[in-house]
Design a binder for these strands. Sequence first.
DNA 1: TTTTTTGTAACACATTGAGTTATAGATATT
DNA 2: AATATCTATAACTCAATGTGTTACAAAAAA
Lengths: 145, 145
Amino acid sequence: MKADAKFSTAIHVCLYLHYRGEKLLSSQEMAASVNTNPVVIRRVLAELRKKDIVGSVAGNQGGFYLKRAVDKISLWDIYQAVNDRELFQKPKVNEECPVSSNLAQLVKLPFQAAENAMQPSLEKITISTLYNQLDDILKTSPKFC
Amino acid sequence: MKADAKFSTAIHVCLYLHYRGEKLLSSQEMAASVNTNPVVIRRVLAELRKKDIVGSVAGNQGGFYLKRAVDKISLWDIYQAVNDRELFQKPKVNEECPVSSNLAQLVKLPFQAAENAMQPSLEKITISTLYNQLDDILKTSPKFC
DNA sequence: TTTTTTGTAACACATTGAGTTATAGATATT
DNA sequence: AATATCTATAACTCAATGTGTTACAAAAAA
């Protein structure tokens, strides 16, 4: 799954796990909410599990659960968990050219700084923040899933 | 071209135009430096031209040139010029689900805030900054292209 | 008038992504 | 103990996207 789409999906799943509030939720049920395949969900959750954001129980009646309090799961935590790649792609190098051959080195720090600049912004928002906002929305127009 | 790759390519081309310092440079020559096709270069430069970062002259002995002083071309200017898409992909919506159907709205502001957080960081670095650094590198290990 | 070069559109091939199928392993239920 | 349900993961297929190329009109210098 593409990094940026994974981010959205991962937020969705965390929010949904909290929304449902059940002990364990199957990938099947989450797939229905995200409108995709259970395997796709499990692949994303596998990455969240590595960072101890979710846990899972195999076997009959098994499923996934949030491993931390929702106010301890920030968007930055989720971003880091699912973003394997660099935000900006490193340039291809043409060794023949002094500009090209040094470009990767020149942009490395600026690219890192830009990505790091997002941190405080994404750290401020947690699953708790989003859930409270969702709750407010649903109070005015209630429907259930 | 993918947004993140375009960003690198656009920086490359701006830096290269200044490095060569000639009145006009053809897409062919730039393509050689970037190790790609002239059409690919022209497509990127078309976006930079829309933002008045470069200019072009058609016809025999035509080519491209930087339209601003290099200390007035920041990485943020270039980023904005070539990034047509959103940094983070909006989630697919499943209208049946109250979490899914509201997710796009919930993450809109956080996503925008994160992208905006990069601005001051990328504004600080200009083509002039990068060129001076390149110049320092080339002083110690000079080669020509 | 010829040549060179930009500006695009259209096409083809390669890469990547998304979804599916399959299967092994784990665990509750019976 | 046997069965059913669910995770974990690999392998495969089809679709989407990206990249490079070809083609050609328009522009301008030689």
